[in-house]
Amino acid sequence: MLLFVFSSAPAFAGSDDVVVENAWSRASIGTKRPGVAYMTIRNNGDDVLTLGTVSTDLAAILEIHRTSTNDRGVSSMARVADLEIPPNGTIALEPGGLHLMLMRLQRPMVEGESYVLSLDFGDHGSVIVRVPILGFTSRGPGN
């Protein structure tokens, strides 16, 4: 099943198992530096959901990363192969934690514009979300 959603309103796929809310990105500085996307993904089902492939025409490479900070205050990022969302669980992709890296941008991410992301949840279908691009210093929708 493929569902198209063109706002930051909830998006549903499969049998109402997947809900994607509050998707957003920050504007980029040209195309040389990666972009980033954030959102909340809720699993309303009884099975573990796995977010596998993510795609967009905005970037050639998309990866899920996790930012962590050690006891000395040094932050680092590591790639997450597949993102699992437990039954009746929620995963937040947010600044300072899990996030979606958009690398090899094909065009600048301009404040006030938006782009489309396709999130593939395997047997639970795909969700297409329009992601608004906010300002460089934004901390999320409404900030």
Rank of each mutant, 00 (worst) to 15 (best):
R42I: 15
F12T: 08
S114W: 09
V54G: 11
A59K: 00
V48A: 14
G30A: 03
E63A: 14
E21S: 13
A9V: 08
L119G: 03
L119A: 05
V20Q: 01
L83H: 03
T137F: 07
K32I: 12
N143K: 05
A37W: 08
L2T: 12
A78E: 14
D57P: 10
G45M: 10
M77W: 04
N88F: 09
M1G: 15
S126G: 15
F136K: 13
I61H: 03
P34H: 02
A37G: 03
G122P: 10
S75T: 02
F12S: 06
V74D: 15
G52V: 06
T31K: 07
V19G: 14
S114P: 02
R79S: 11
S8Q: 09
T90Q: 15
P87D: 13
T67P: 02
V129D: 05
M109N: 09
T53H: 05
G89R: 11
I91Y: 02
P141E: 13
H65K: 14
S138I: 08
D123G: 14
S7N: 07
V127A: 12
I85P: 07
A60D: 12
T50P: 05
A11S: 12
V74P: 03
M39R: 04
A23Q: 11
V20D: 09
L49T: 05
V129K: 04
R139K: 15
N70G: 09
E111T: 00
G73P: 10
N43F: 09
V131I: 11
